[in-house]
Amino acid sequence: MSLKNLVTDWPRYRQGIEEGGFQHYEHRWGMAIDLNACIGCNACSTACYAENNLAVVGKERFAKGHFMHWMRIERYWDENYAEQQHPEQGAHFMPMLCQQCGAAPCEPVCPVVATYHTPDGLNAQVYNRCIGSRYCNNNCPYRVRYFNFWSYYESSWPEPLNLQLNPDLTVRDKGVMEKCTFCVQRIRVAKDKARMENRKVKDGEFTTACAQACPTSAITFGDLMDQDSAVTRLWAKHEVSRYDDKGRPVQEQNKAHPELRGYRVLEELNVDPSVMYLERVREELA
């Protein structure tokens, strides 16, 4: 990124949500995750490991917090759930990945601008630029940035697993933050292809690894700037929007109607996430 881009483009893309936000994204990649459909099987997480060259750190390092799963399944239990009427309902699952916030808290704190906002509305992490201060991780309300504490080179994958590494993506080095990119390598290929054929990227032309692997199709991925895309229609159906009628950021979705299950996690922080969740409907608990 040249200095010119740094000074002009970057603040423009992440123009404060209180100023109306930036509305002219080329694309705005977004997601909808239906928690009713999610069975907590971790297929998305596994697919992410395979697609993005994620290192398997092992039990001991995991216990120290050195894990690097860009996508995790969070489990929540109701309070004293064992005594309740339907304990067999078990945990609530929530796949948690980078929410690609429009006004991301991780971005302004980076001392070297290794994390910045792209014209596609993504939070980019440039590994070459990162110095590993971990400030972004501390500022992320979702805790979805992961620090690489150890070197995991090609040679650290046991044979023949080194052959499965994805060449469209680097194998990151020690001392840098890494995070979910919404499979930017797939986005890049789709955009390149569309550009070569002088057309726009079509909805459903590609999807992220997690959405592709999900056995219950709980994850929908697409372009929120495209009014006909599946994800936009899903956002509209559940009346989840980034701004209200007056152009002000939405702080809490209207939950008056029982059919409206959509919400975005930690919406009240005004970070404008790109991921919408559809609430799980459970049997009435006594």
Partner: peptide
Amino acid sequence: HEKNGGPGDCWQCHK
């Protein structure tokens, strides 16, 4: 890229 109007976004080239 600057002289010929190429993209200036990091993620266009860095992966």
